[in-house]
C-alpha cells in the first residue's frame, strides 16, 4: 500500500508554541509540520527539552496559559483546524477523538477519586450514557488492559495500583471512547524496564481492538521507535530535523543529529569493546537558540553558513524530509 492511498488524519502546519518566562520568550516549538495518517504509529523522537511534549500538548490545546501560548500554525484533524475551535468544541474532541496518555502514571490520576470514577467520568461526559452503562464499559476496558477482577478494582484508588497498573488504567481511560488518535507522551519512561515492553505491546493490542486509532508516540528511546513505529520524526531545538519511514531511518540516517543518536545506541552487530559514540556538547538553552541550524554547535560537519542560516526542511526523497544544508537528494542521501 503506497502512502498516498492512506488518508491524512492529522496535519501540523508550521506550529509555533512559545512560553513567556521572566520577560523573555522561549520558542519551545518553532515551526513544526508533519502529517499522521490513519492507522499508523508515528514516532516523535528527541532529547528532553527538544519540544516534543509541547508539540503533543499543543495538539490537545493543553498548553498552560500563561506562560505558554500557541503563537501560530494549523493543526488539522480530519481536515478541521483545531485552533479555530471554541473551547466547548475542543472539549468534544478531547478524550473522544484524540486522547492522551501521560508520562507519570503516579501523578496523572487524581488521588482522591476511585479508578472507576475517573474512568466513568470521561465515558459519561462524551456518550451521555447511564451510570450503569458507563460502569460496564469501564469494566470492559479494565479487562481489556489486563487488570484482573476489574469490577472490584474499579472501586480502588490510584494509590492502590502499581505504576504499571496505573498506566494500564490510563490506557483504558484513553481508549474507552475509541478515539481516532492516541497521543502517548513517553508512556513507559517512568516504568520499570520489565514492564515497559508489556505496556507498549498492550497499547498496540488494545488499540487494534478499539477502533484502530493512529498513535503519536513521543519518546526519547530509539529502540522503542524501532520496535513500534511506522514512521518517525526527529526533533531538535523545537524543530523537526528529519522525517522518515522507520526502516529507512535506521538504515541510512540523513541528518547528522540522527546519525549521532543512532551511533550512540549499543548495537549487537557492532564489535564489542568499542566505546559508544556520544554527541559532544549540550542541547542549547531554549531561551537562547542560535540563529542558524540548531544543531550546528554540536555538528561534526558544520560549515560557517550552518551557524548563520537556518536550513529548510526539504523533501530529499519521496517521504523523506531533512533539515540540513549539507544533505541533498541526488546521491540517495548524503552529499558528504
Amino acid at each position: 500500500m503506497s502512502r498516498d492511498d492512506r488518508q491524512k488524519l492529522l496535519e501540523l502546519r508550521d506550529l509555533r508554541t512559545y512560553f513567556d518566562v521572566e520577560g523573555r520568550t522561549a520558542k519551545a516549538v518553532d515551526g513544526v509540520s508533519f502529517d499522521i495518517y490513519t492507522n499508523e504509529v508515528f514516532g516523535l523522537v528527541g532529547e528532553s527539552g527538544s519540544g516534543k511534549s509541547v508539540t503533543s500538548l499543543s495538539i490537545m490545546r493543553l498548553i498552560p496559559n500563561p506562560p505558554g501560548r500557541i503563537e501560530s500554525g494549523e493543526i488539522r484533524f480530519r481536515g478541521q483546524n483545531l485552533l479555530d475551535l471554541s473551547f466547548a468544541e475542543m472539549r468534544k474532541i478531547r478524550g473522544n477523538d484524540i486522547s492522551m496518555i501521560f508520562q507519570e502514571p503516579m501523578t496523572a490520576l487524581n488521588p482522591v477519586f476511585t479508578i472507576g470514577y475517573q474512568l466513568r467520568e470521561g465515558i459519561r461526559y462524551h456518550s451521555k450514557c447511564s451510570k450503569a452503562e458507563a460502569e460496564d464499559r469501564a469494566t470492559e476496558m479494565l479487562d481489556l488492559v489486563g487488570i484482573p477482577d476489574p469490577r472490584r478494582r474499579l472501586k480502588d484508588y490510584p494509590h492502590q495500583f502499581s505504576g504499571g497498573m496505573r498506566q494500564r488504567a490510563m490506557i483504558a481511560m484513553a481508549l474507552s471512547m475509541e478515539p481516532g488518535l492516541l497521543i502517548a507522551d513517553e508512556p513507559t519512561t517512568a516504568l520499570d524496564v520489565t514492564i515497559q515492553a508489556q505496556i507498549l505491546e498492550l497499547m498496540l493490542k488494545v488499540r487494534e481492538k478499539t477502533g484502530d486509532a493512529s498513535i503519536l508516540l513521543i519518546t526519547h528511546d530509539l529502540a522503542v521507535v524501532a520496535e513500534t513505529c511506522d514512521r518517525v520524526a526527529v526533533m531538535y531545538g523545537g524543530k523537526i530535523q528529519e522525517i522518515s519511514e522507520v526502516k529507512a531511518l535506521f538504515k541510512t540516517p540523513l541528518h547528522p543529529y540522527t546519525q549521532g543518536l543512532l551511533s550512540s545506541l549499543p548495537r549487537p552487530d557492532k564489535q564489542k569493546k568499542t566505546r559508544l559514540d556520544t554527541i559532544p556538547g549540550i542541547v542549547p538553552s531554549i531561551m537562547s537558540m542560535p540563529p542558524g541550524c540548531k544543531f550546528a554547535a554540536r555538528c561534526p560537519i558544520a560549515e560557517p553558513r550552518c551557524e548563520r542560516d537556518e536550513p529548510e526542511l526539504r523533501e530529499i526523497t519521496p517521504g523523506r524530509f531533512c533539515r540540513c544544508h549539507l544533505v541533498d537528494g541526488k546521491g540517495g542521501g548524503r552529499a558528504w
Partner: peptide, 12 residues
C-alpha cells in the same frame, strides 16, 4: 514570592 513563586497556568 521571591523564593517560591506561585503560578497560575490556566487550562481550559
Amino acid at each position: 514570592e521571591a523564593f517560591d513563586p506561585k503560578v497560575f497556568s490556566r487550562l481550559r
